[in-house]
Amino acid sequence: MGGEVIHALRDVSLKINKGEYVAVMGPSGSGKSTLMNLIGALDVPTSGDLVVNGLNLSGQESDTLADFRNLTVGFVFQQFNLLSRTSALENVKLPLFYARHLGSINAGERARKCLQQVGLSDRMHHDPTQLSGGQQQRVAIARALVNQPSVVLADEPTGALDTKTSVEILDLFQQLNDKGITLIVVTHDPEVAEVSRRNLLFRDGRLVDDVSMARR
């Protein structure tokens, strides 16, 4: 309590290339979620530089960060975080609503395509409560993809799903990565670590291991 300063992350120097599929691992409190929040511009670093897609996120205006979150990254959460009593289609359209630079695009059309991509063409007008956990997570993934981001950030995406559904979601991730989308997945799940191409291991706020896997 009091004035004690806690460093969630320190002395981390890291480069992730375009098109990589990275699993971020580590015990609770190791700083892996903080890393993801920083990359996704949900949080700003107290010190140090963080450049994503050419933009240095340190010291940016909140509007710039909002636009960055809108256009450059897509989030997938453990608890899906879908708007309740709102159809799958409307949920997927949400980021487009805040997309200022896109001008007049057909939001409905684009959202439909993304739902097709995650295999939910027949569930577009269902509310989240009418969907299974796996389907809800697919809606969330479609939402993350709708603004065609450079990076998709996923925080324990399979944490709330059973094994079989997890495998489906991981297959979907694989397909996305094959299309060139950079994937950064925070996870406890060894399955995820296995399918990714690079594992980052964090402990007590420090990057302790960085292992690249052979391409399968």
Binding site: D63, F75, N81, L83, L94, Y98
Partner: peptide, 13 residues
């Protein structure tokens, strides 16, 4: 609100 901020809503939105 958190989600809206995460998907790109500005504070003014």
């Amino acid at each position: 609100i958190g989600l809206r901020l995460a998907v790109g809503a500005r504070r003014r939105d």
